[in-house]
Design a protein around this nucleic acid. Structure first.
Lengths: 144, 144
DNA sequence: CTTGACCTTCCTACGAGGGGAAGGTTTATC
DNA sequence: GATAAACCTTCCCCTCGTAGGAAGGTCAAG
């Protein structure tokens, strides 16, 4: 199986597969004589695991940790669980942050009549000195 | 007021202020004879507006749009409102995505006994073929 | 033999900055 | 007036997880 097929099979892109190899998340793939990467079903299995972990929001680095646990047949399930719960807490923190923004935005929007007139409490609030840091608790976290 | 003071005053970093200038989000600052950037209270006002917008999760590009609306004294408040509501919908979409991950993780973790034994339903699930794409709806969205 | 669909490596860009080097300026203290 | 600390300047490279594309090699079908 070459990289394109492996990509279709796993829901990743060929680019991603090469990238994961380049950063050492997966072992270098076998190669044909002409240099094409070759994937066995066991490699596909690993790639699917990776895609699943990424889909659950684990970073690539965390995914490497999970892969190591997966391959370590003597791991304690408690280790996996704490890994998962730690990540869950991260996600919940992110959600809380986004919800703070949503609350503020909803509040501001609800006070804006939203017609053709120029006066707008949303802009007024954003421009007001007192509002600085109100809905931006502590740090300006990475958005996206 | 030089850049360091302006940064402290607005809650941004000096790097960010230079960056915003470099990408054209703000006008090039005035300079002293020796080349130091100088900020007037009106510039500080703008920087605070930016910080507030970023704190509400608007991208820099969206912030540029908001700034333009802010400066346009003839804008319709409806434009601002729709801008805000669009962003709100984006945030809500992001939250829903994260919550999907959380739900799955909570479910998986609740089925893991979390003791010293190696068998772990979390890893089992992640490795199972059928689970592919289950909690990763459609695209693998950028995490962080 | 040619065409098109693959594959390879390498380089660039994104967003939103952070870190730090090398060097100039300003301010406070002695 | 000298010196040291604390500023400032530009410049370039790093992050993270990809995507896009150029230049060139390979493979299967017609």
């Amino acid at each position: 199986m070459n990289i394109g097929e492996a990509a279709r099979e796993t829901g990743l892109s060929a680019k991603m597969v090469r990238y994961y190899e380049s950063i050492g998340l997966i072992q270098p793939a076998l190669r044909t004589e002409s240099g094409y990467r070759v994937y066995r079903s066991e490699d596909i299995h690993t790639l699917r695991f990776i895609r699943r972990a990424r889909g659950l929001g684990f970073s690539v680095e965390e995914t490497a940790g999970l892969l190591a646990l997966w391959r370590d047949k003597t791991r304690a399930s408690a280790d996996v669980k704490s890994f998962a719960l730690k990540h869950l807490a991260d996600l919940e923190g992110k959600i809380a942050e986004l919800e703070g923004m949503c609350r503020t935005l909803r509040h501001l929007a609800s006070h804006c009549h939203g017609d053709g007139r120029p006066d707008c409490p949303i802009l007024d609030d954003m421009a007001s000195v007192s509002a600085v840091g109100k809905a931006a608790p502590a740090k300006l976290a990475p958005t996206r």
